[in-house]
């Protein structure tokens, strides 16, 4: 597991209280793991921990709805 993936997963675990590393393709919104509030926290943590700025406008739900997609999105922005 590379650094980015580890960081993203640890952020998700802090935010949701759930370890999602085993379910990289779970839909976080459908499962009720993440909501709008959690999304914003995720964006803020990405900024704090990885230094990537993601404006709220960039947050198109369908592009951020699984752990795998989030990791890919973050890697594309680094």
């Amino acid at each position: 597991m590379d650094d980015t993936q580890a960081t993203v997963l640890s952020i998700l675990q802090d935010l949701t209280g759930e370890d999602v590393s085993g379910n990289m393709d779970t839909n976080l919104f459908d499962e009720g793991i993440l909501d709008s509030m959690g999304s914003v926290q995720l964006l803020l943590e990405l900024q704090n921990q990885l230094g990537i700025e993601v404006p709220v406008s960039e947050f198109e739900r369908t592009e951020w709805d699984t752990p795998a997609k989030i990791v890919a999105k973050v890697e594309s922005m680094q």
Binding site: S36, M37, S39, V40, Q41, L43, L44, V56, S57, F59
Partner: peptide, 29 residues
């Protein structure tokens, strides 16, 4: 409303640490 008001409001409130608790933040918003 979610994308242009709620999320932006939460973002602003959390960034400026207006409330300590995330639950209060979510509820007020």
């Amino acid at each position: 409303f979610r994308d242009y008001i709620y999320m932006r409001l939460v973002f602003f409130v959390m960034k400026h640490k207006v409330f300590k608790s995330r639950i209060t933040t979510a509820n007020v918003c």
